[in-house]
């Protein structure tokens, strides 16, 4: 499952922190890359349903950290 975080809405540092937290999950892989307007994260897991749930939780976590730090990185 692919997550495309818009740079104007999500902080790259928040996404990295979220990935660091979720990296300990078993049988789950994350691939991060950057595009012009987006941070892109590919989530792979043992099943599509599990990947989807982890992607949702990761996005929520990254959004929460972004809001707590006051918005995207400057």
């Amino acid at each position: 499952m692919t997550l495309r975080f818009h740079r104007a809405l999500y902080a790259g540092t928040a996404i990295d922190a979220a990935l660091g937290r979720f990296a300990q999950l078993a049988n789950t892989g994350f691939d991060r890359r950057e595009e012009v307007d987006h941070f892109v994260v590919e989530v792979t897991a043992s099943s599509e349903a599990r990947a989807k749930k982890i992607a949702h939780e990761l996005a929520n976590f990254a959004l929460g950290l972004t809001i707590e730090q006051g918005g995207p990185d400057r």
Partner: peptide
């Protein structure tokens, strides 16, 4: 920031995704 504030209130209840 108003969108952020509203989104933060819903993080516990649902998955929130923001985009342009």
């Amino acid at each position: 920031h108003a969108v952020y504030a509203a989104a933060y209130c819903f993080i516990a209840r649902c998955y929130v995704w923001l985009d342009r």
